[in-house]
Amino acid sequence: EEAIQNFKALLSDMVRSSDVSWSDTRRTLRKDHRWESGSLLEREEKEKLFNEHIEALTK
């Protein structure tokens, strides 16, 4: 649960536009030290959280 919250915070800070792809964003996020705290999450979970974040940005 904490890993999810940390990853959501990372997305909020780093992803402000809804027209970015997961693969491009992932490359950028990996450069942030907080990426490692999400290592407990599966890749699919990270992508799902990313997609939810993008959906929220479009509303």
Rank of each mutant, 00 (worst) to 15 (best):
E1S: 08
E1I: 11
E2L: 09
E2K: 11
E2V: 08
A3Y: 06
A3W: 02
A3S: 11
I4W: 00
I4T: 10
I4C: 02
I4P: 01
Q5L: 09
Q5H: 10
Q5S: 09
Q5W: 03
Q5C: 10
N6S: 13
N6R: 10
N6I: 06
N6W: 00
N6L: 07
N6Y: 01
F7M: 01
F7T: 05
F7R: 03
F7N: 07
K8T: 01
K8Y: 01
A9N: 13
A9I: 06
A9R: 10
A9G: 08
A9V: 03
L10D: 06
L10E: 04
L10C: 00
L11H: 01
L11Q: 05
L11K: 07
S12H: 12
S12L: 12
S12R: 14
D13V: 03
D13C: 02
D13H: 03
D13M: 01
D13I: 04
D13K: 07
M14Y: 15
M14H: 13
M14C: 13
M14L: 14
V15P: 01
V15R: 00
R16G: 07
R16F: 06
R16E: 09
R16L: 12
R16I: 10
R16H: 12
R16W: 02
S17D: 13
S17Y: 02
S17K: 07
S18V: 13
S18W: 03
S18A: 15
D19S: 08
D19I: 00
D19Q: 10
D19W: 01
D19N: 09
V20A: 13
V20Y: 07
V20Q: 09
V20C: 13
S21K: 11
S21M: 05
W22S: 04
W22D: 03
W22V: 05
D24H: 02
D24F: 00
T25L: 14
T25A: 15
T25V: 15
R26N: 13
R26P: 01
R26I: 15
R27G: 11
R27N: 12
R27L: 10
T28L: 14
T28M: 15
T28P: 01
L29Y: 01
L29C: 04
R30E: 15
R30V: 13
R30H: 08
R30M: 15
R30L: 12
K31M: 11
K31W: 05
D32E: 02
D32A: 00
H33W: 14
H33C: 00
H33K: 14
R34T: 02
R34G: 06
R34V: 05
R34Q: 04
R34H: 01
W35F: 05
W35S: 07
W35G: 11
W35C: 05
S37A: 12
S37L: 10
S37C: 13
S37P: 06
S37T: 13
G38V: 14
G38S: 15
G38P: 08
G38A: 15
S39V: 10
S39N: 14
S39R: 13
L40D: 13
L41G: 03
E42M: 13
E42T: 15
E42A: 15
R43A: 15
E44D: 12
E44P: 09
E44L: 03
E44I: 06
E44N: 11
E44F: 04
K46I: 04
K46M: 14
E47I: 09
K48A: 12
K48E: 09
L49H: 02
L49R: 01
L49Q: 03
F50E: 06
F50H: 09
F50G: 04
N51G: 07
N51P: 04
N51M: 10
E52R: 05
H53Q: 03
H53G: 01
H53N: 07
H53D: 04
I54E: 07
I54L: 09
I54C: 11
I54V: 13
I54P: 05
E55D: 10
E55I: 08
E55P: 02
A56C: 11
T58A: 12
T58G: 14
T58V: 08
T58R: 14
K59A: 12
K59V: 12
K59F: 03
